[in-house]
Design a protein around this nucleic acid. Structure first.
Ligand code: MN
Ligand code: MN
Ligand code: ZN
Ligand code: ZN
Lengths: 141, 141
DNA sequence: CCCCTTATTGATAACGAATATCAATATAAT
DNA sequence: ATTATATTGATATTCGTTATCAATAAGGGG
């Protein structure tokens, strides 16, 4: 199986885009993160390795990673986060309104019923977003 | 059962807030809309009845209506919309990525499994968001 | 009804995340 | 190497929303 670098390179080639040192570094830093990461934190880490990389390039590259299927973008609590999406199963999130913590889960039946609903409406499903908001175990204490 | 005006008045009293002509007009215009409405359209309609009402007051009042449980706020395709929430059953949305149309649906089993997931994680569910993105029947043709 | 505290208002400045612009530079195909 | 074109970083710009603030209004007590 191809690794993320090869997947990204292939994606770029396919779209007549170019493999650059900036894109390489951004991908390197991104894949060593885990969980949901915001642009700001990503930028700090990238900046510490190469202070010349501009914020615009980071935004542009993250968009490419999403298009390439290597990153997933979420917006929780007015905040945009990116999540690695490589050999990671699809999942949805519980989001604590108090501490902001997210809990990941998957529920095959829910996914199945989503498809059912779409079929019933002649709708071709491409992606979905499901977020459950509330109060987590820790914050209830 | 109380109507929306009484509910809003009660809400305001409870929070030591005041019933004003501006809030009355905004609620009047809001409840005669159906479906998902953006601030801009709401503002146009309000402006035609009273050009002196400022946009800030509209934003402030819509937030109050959400808090009072009379309006629901969504963000589809980077656009914030408000939806009337009075004697309207909870529902989720299919959103066409081509034409932007939304289709409403409800699925009791999905809701049930959502609760199940929350219980399993000791999570107290307060609200949720579920949006299915894809291509609608019209746009596929 | 008046008084008085406090909420509300509208105009407008400010914010901030994300994007557009653009001239200089780098990439990769030939 | 040459060449066409994609990319870059700095920076200006966008735009929906919120903060500021002085003037005004609401509404409870008397
Ligand atoms: Mn996740
Ligand atoms: Mn709806
Ligand atoms: Zn929590
Ligand atoms: Zn459509």
């Amino acid at each position: 199986m191809l690794n993320e670098f090869d997947i990204f390179k292939d994606f770029l080639r396919h779209h007549h885009l170019r493999w650059t040192p900036q894109r390489k570094l951004i991908l390197e830093v991104f894949i060593e993160q885990q969980g949901h990461i915001v642009i700001e934190d990503l930028h700090k880490k990238i900046h510490s390795q190469d202070p010349t990389i501009g914020i615009a390039t980071l935004y542009r590259t993250m968009k490419l990673l999403v298009d390439a299927g290597l990153a997933d973008m979420h917006t929780f609590n007015e905040r945009t986060t990116y999540e690695r999406l490589y050999k990671v199963r699809h999942h949805d999130h519980l989001i604590c309104k108090v501490c902001g913590r997210t809990i990941e889960f998957e529920h095959p039946l829910i996914e199945k019923y989503q498809l059912e609903v779409c079929e019933r409406h002649g709708f071709t499903l491409r992606s979905h977003r499901m977020e459950l908001f509330g109060i987590c175990n820790e914050c209830r204490k």
